[in-house]
Simulated assay, not measured.
Amino acid sequence: MEVSELKAWCAGHPGAKFDYQKDWNAERYLVGGKMFAMFGHDKSGTPILSVKCEPHRADMLREEYEDIKPGYYMNKTHWNSLALNGSLPDAIFKECITHSYELVFKGLTKKLQNEVTGQ
């Protein structure tokens, strides 16, 4: 899947906002001011997408897919980094982005959730 398609998928979630973290040289997507996806590179220069993930699910994905690693420069329990130049199926990227968005959204206050959904 093309990176531009993944970014469009991120941006398509309700209330998603884009920003650029200059210090990390990374493009981020946030909801309610909290990050749910980050496009960057690991120490070897491999392009990666880092997403939040429920810990048990994160472990299962890492075991199943060689191109999914503990979050690079993130909390290794709650974040995964997916290689963008690997062999992951398109559906995995979309599922992981949506799962991350939902986890972050659920962690927002009810007030912020209502602002995001327009209620």
Rank of each mutant, 00 (worst) to 15 (best):
F39N: 04
V31R: 00
G86K: 13
F36D: 00
H78M: 10
R28M: 15
V51D: 04
A8W: 03
S87R: 14
M74T: 07
V104L: 04
H78P: 03
G32C: 10
N25E: 15
G45K: 07
H56E: 15
L103D: 07
P14G: 08
G33S: 00
K69C: 11
G86A: 08
L82E: 04
L49N: 04
G12Y: 04
D42G: 07
V51M: 01
P70K: 01
S87P: 11
S87N: 14
M35F: 03
N80G: 13
K76G: 09
H56Q: 15
M74I: 09
G86D: 06
S50K: 01
K34A: 08
Y29R: 05
K106I: 10
L6P: 00
F105T: 01
T98I: 13
S81N: 05
A16V: 03
E64I: 09
N85P: 06
E54K: 11
P14T: 07
F93T: 00
S50E: 04
A58G: 04
M35G: 05
E63G: 14
L6V: 01
L61W: 08
L84F: 05
M35N: 03
K43F: 12
T46P: 09
R28S: 12
C96K: 03
F18G: 06
G15W: 01
F36H: 00
P70G: 09
K34F: 04
T77S: 12
E64H: 14
A37G: 09
A37P: 11
N75P: 04
G45T: 06
I68H: 05
K106Q: 15
K94R: 15
C96S: 14
E64R: 12
